[in-house]
Amino acid sequence: MSYRWHQETAPMTSLLVLQNALQHCGLKVIDPSQLIEQLRLARNNILEVKNLDQKIAAYEEYMDLIKKCSDTNSLPTSIKLNNYQLSLTNSFRYVVSGYSANYDKTDEQAMQASISKLNDAYKLIAMGLGDEMKDAMASIENLKKEEQKKLRETLNRVVKAEQESYRNSIKDAKDKIFQIIKENAIKEGGYKVKRHIYTTGKNAGREQYVVVKRS
């Protein structure tokens, strides 16, 4: 008996984090978008170059790319991997569909495990953005003082750029969600949408919309 299945990824807003997560999970992107490939090459280049000036130049190149992935428009509509394809069917989630000629759950289970690993990697990388650069900072003792300063300043800028890019991608996603809700509320008639953004304490960063219709 044949059957079809599909699996959704967790919400993903940042191409920078997604590319890093794919690389982290060892998922090779076939026929990648230009930006995905550029990010991969730039990240590899940082690791490969040894000379300080080359290293700084590699970081600068990486930072130029980071700026290009700070909104959800940079997410590719489809990502082809070795065994399957991720399709951006709604605004911020990828869907993987599959088909099995026999009622054999092995393919489905393998794909589920793979997506779950990608979701976890995405979350971990997003939470620890900048950690990689901080690790790099900790290992620059063998340089001269002047050189250390120069590299440290560059690394600090990279950390800030990565974090800012991720924050902007989330902000962009939230703005789109608000827009979608608002447009639909107006279309339905009689509804108002109140937006509240938490700025302090443990709730900082949470966003709440209340859709109201007077009876």
Binding site: I177, R206, Q208, Y209, V210, V211, K213, S215
Partner: peptide
């Protein structure tokens, strides 16, 4: 009033 809350 009808109220629905969406939290992100």
């Amino acid at each position: 009033q009808e109220e629905v809350e969406i939290t992100i």
